[in-house]
Amino acid sequence: MIRVEAISKQFVGIQALKQVSFEVGANEVVGFLGPNGAGKTTLMRMLSGFLTPDEGSIEVAGFDAIMNAREVKRRIGYLPEHCPLYPEMRVDEFLTYRAAIKGVLGRRVRDRLQMVKMQCGLEQVGHRIIGQLSKGYRQRIGLADALIHEPELLILDEPTVGLDPHQIRQVRSLIKGLAKQHTVLLSTHIMQEVEAVCERVLVIRSGEVVAADTVDNFRKDASLDRSVIMEVQCEAVAFQSLSESVAWIGIARMDALADGWLRLELNLEEGYLAEDVFAWAAEMKLVLRLLQTIESTLEEAFVAAMDEKTGS
């Protein structure tokens, strides 16, 4: 659906994007992650056709975004950051106007209006003036606007920013629902959002892509200390003496359970995994009833990716 090849963008005194390349397949939900000022919004503005790259190429649904900008824009539903709307217009009036300028014709305008209002929970506020509505409703109007012309690709720049937890849940479940029929690009720095909605992540830092993978792989690939939880039938002192002979195992925590078993949290050196612990335990003839890898959270993986880049 999207093919971005070596795009760069420079503003006065700032290199916003440097040789960014990636691909997104049809019906994928991809999360753009990155700290403030990383270049997420610039990238989204380029994909939506608002900005043009200084170099490189962008292809959406087989059309070149610069040569065939109009065809590309027909296929994109874009929700910009801060969700800009005309505050003096009524909801129905605004959505009808937006449908018309996006090329939705005649009777289909009414059908699409009813459909997006239902999808975004706006049935009760169609006659209301936008400026008098809450932030949550305005965000939903922005989403309805992005959807009104049935685009193949949805580009959402921080769609839940400024919403309360209930509204965030509503918007996330709406995006999840949309993902069945649309390709979705979602920019955010809320990790739970990515975990809840996205299949893949694209991490940007200082205008460069530092990671592009599935959410699960990104978490696993992060260069964090590996940790495992283990329950073993052994006495604490005995286990300690056994483990002292193995350099790659570090005991982070040790609790004697009421049933006589020992619960341990172990930190493993880089390159060692749970299966190595299992093999060692078997060699030591230790009886195990639990051995589990503690997966790093997306947040930890993200911080690690940022640190890796800065070398800190």
Binding site: R70, K73, R74, P84, L85, I101
Partner: peptide, 14 residues
């Protein structure tokens, strides 16, 4: 100022 320029110019109008 409202940011609506971005919303308008990302539609197929010139």
């Amino acid at each position: 100022r409202l940011g609506t320029l971005e919303a308008v110019l990302t539609t197929p109008i010139s």
